[in-house]
């Protein structure tokens, strides 16, 4: 493996002032384990401070830095130069913002708008069942938790949503499905009927065609498609229906 790479980033830029969009090329000299966020920062510090991008934790835990590199939605803070060159078999990368929400500037898209879809599935316990006693936690067996615990690892990076075959128009998105499924399976949630209505509604699971791009791109390696399929198989015991 080389210790340095000559990298070209072809970045899709957007200027909200005059609504102009263009591709700008940046040539960089990069060490093998620099991450793409490091490259972006390098561009800011050495070449072009006006280029805007988004990140927060910079260690793959928050899902702020999602971008599309050569068409693949991923976390820029997790992608090492070395791995990128190897995976895409080229040192030239097209860098674009995800198209799940309007772009604000350059690679920054409006996550607030993207999150609207998560809000719609009510990512919380709507109506908590009564805990065993006031001073006690629920007991949930590890086996029971196993069914949904992986879904709770989602960081809402929207990579899955961006990759999904169902356009970004009507589908609430794979990650919204996860958020909804968690509480369908969570024994602490009493209000299942409302959830199932959303889940099986017009913007729900039936917009999924099992293309499994979600599982393929998910940086947290969550088998998202599995959860969506669980909903389709629909074998939940719904206390409100029984």
């Amino acid at each position: 493996m080389a210790s340095h790479y000559h990298i070209t980033l072809k970045i899709r830029r957007y200027d909200p002032e005059n609504r102009r969009s263009w591709i700008q090329n940046y040539h960089l000299e990069a060490g093998r384990i620099l991450r793409f966020v490091d490259l972006f920062r390098k561009i800011n510090n050495e070449q072009d401070p006006t280029f805007s991008w988004n990140s927060s934790c910079e260690h793959g835990q928050c899902g702020t830095c999602s971008v599309k590199i050569n068409g693949k939605p991923l976390l820029a803070c997790e992608l090492l130069v070395e791995n990128a060159v190897q995976y895409f078999n080229t040192p030239v990368f097209n860098v674009e913002p995800l198209e799940v929400a309007p772009v604000v500037r350059d690679l920054v898209f409006d996550l607030t708008k993207a999150y609207k879809r998560i809000d719609q599935v009510k990512p919380y316990v709507i109506s908590p069942a009564n805990p065993p006693s006031d001073q006690d936690e629920y007991s949930i067996s590890p086996n029971e938790m196993k069914q949904y615990i992986n879904a709770t690892r989602c960081i809402n990076c929207f990579c899955c949503s961006s990759a999904c075959i169902s356009s970004h128009r009507n589908f609430l998105g794979p990650n919204a499905m996860l958020a909804s499924m968690i509480r369908v399976l969570d024994p602490r949630e009493k209000e299942k009927a409302q959830r199932l209505k959303i889940l099986y509604g017009h913007r729900g699971v039936y917009r999924c065609h099992s293309s499994r791009a979600c599982s393929f791109v998910c940086p947290k390696e969550i088998d998202v498609a599995h959860f969506v399929a669980l909903a389709k198989a629909g074998r939940f015991n719904d206390p409100n229906n029984e």
Binding site: G71, K72, I165, H209, S211, R212, A213, F216
Partner: peptide, 18 residues
Amino acid sequence: SVYVKSRGWYFVIAWAHR
């Protein structure tokens, strides 16, 4: 191949199915 790299085989299969 572009889609296989960026979305995976099942994505391509889903399109073919459609």
